[in-house]
Amino acid sequence: MTTFVRVGADQLARCHRAAREEGLAPALTVLRALVLPGLLPCGPGGHAVVPQEVAAGANRVWLDGVTVDRSADEESTVDSIDLPGGTVVLLRHGIGSRGADVHAEQRASWQLGLVWLRLGLSEALRETCMRYLNGRRTGSTTLLQQQMVKSTVADGLIEHLEVRAVLTGVDAGDLPEVILAHLHARITAADRWLVNLLGASGYLTGGPGQAAHVSELVAEAYLRAES
């Protein structure tokens, strides 16, 4: 039986800082160490988005709240992606016989931490966009000063501020899953707006667009389908 220690809001906010300052892989490493130490975290469909080191080192699998032994026969690697901060691996684990060690609070901590993490990534994307747009000129001004561009950046900022307002001071389990799914959707929308502002440079391999795409995959991997 796995022993779970309650993870507070301040600890989960560390994932936000790591994501904003270092990238996806370091932030996932922090969250996994806080909530699921030693385990390979998989969502309800058996999908995982994890740092390369986690994929290589975990001996047991956490399947949306229960733990099972890890078996190479039940697992496949979907992709490996190099991003700023480190390589992340996309895995698919077969859903076979499950253990009985269920922790609703552990699941809630993981889910809340993922929203904090994605918010940090999205805020870093906004900062990248602002630097890029402020360095590109059109006529006598910069792209950042164009009205439609400023409006899009402002819309992204509003999304970030509103998501942060909902998350601030919240402990695991305080927000229902439907609210967490809504926050993920708002972060995804902001990311898509911001990546479009980067033009073709936003879609280069290893660039901001790819990082935003993998961030979206994180939400899809670990969210439960609505019943």
Score class of each variant (00 low, 15 high):
G96W: 01
W116Y: 12
E177N: 06
L167D: 12
V68Q: 04
E53M: 04
Q106W: 00
A27N: 08
G113Y: 07
E162M: 13
V214M: 04
A55S: 14
E177P: 01
T138G: 05
E75Q: 13
M1S: 13
L143G: 01
G85T: 06
D82P: 05
A190Y: 00
L198D: 10
A55W: 05
Q11F: 01
G173M: 09
N196W: 00
D73C: 02
A27C: 10
A9S: 15
A9N: 06
R20V: 08
I179T: 15
Q106F: 00
G173L: 09
S71E: 11
A181T: 14
L121Q: 13
R126Q: 14
V54K: 00
P84Q: 09
A212H: 05
A55P: 05
F4L: 06
V30D: 01
G96N: 10
A100C: 01
G206K: 09
L197T: 12
L112R: 08
A56L: 11
N196M: 05
E21T: 14
L121A: 07
R136F: 02
S122I: 04
L197A: 07
Q210R: 09
V102I: 10
T152N: 02
G135Y: 03
L12F: 05
V88G: 06
A27M: 06
G209R: 05
L119A: 15
Q111N: 10
R107C: 09
M1T: 11
S80G: 10
N196L: 09
V50W: 02
G169W: 04
S97V: 13
P26R: 06
L40M: 05
E74Q: 12
Y132M: 10
T2K: 03
A225Y: 03
L175C: 08
S151D: 11
T3D: 08
E22Q: 14
E123C: 10
R136V: 15
T67S: 10
V153G: 04
V214W: 04
P44H: 07
L28V: 07
E159A: 14
N59F: 07
V166G: 01
V30G: 01
V115Y: 03
A219R: 00
E226Y: 06
R17W: 08
D64P: 02
K150Y: 11
L198G: 09
L143P: 02
W110C: 04
Q106H: 00
P208K: 01
I158C: 11
E127Q: 13
L31S: 05
G139I: 03
G46A: 06
K150F: 11
A154V: 03
W62L: 09
G207W: 01
R92W: 11
V5T: 15
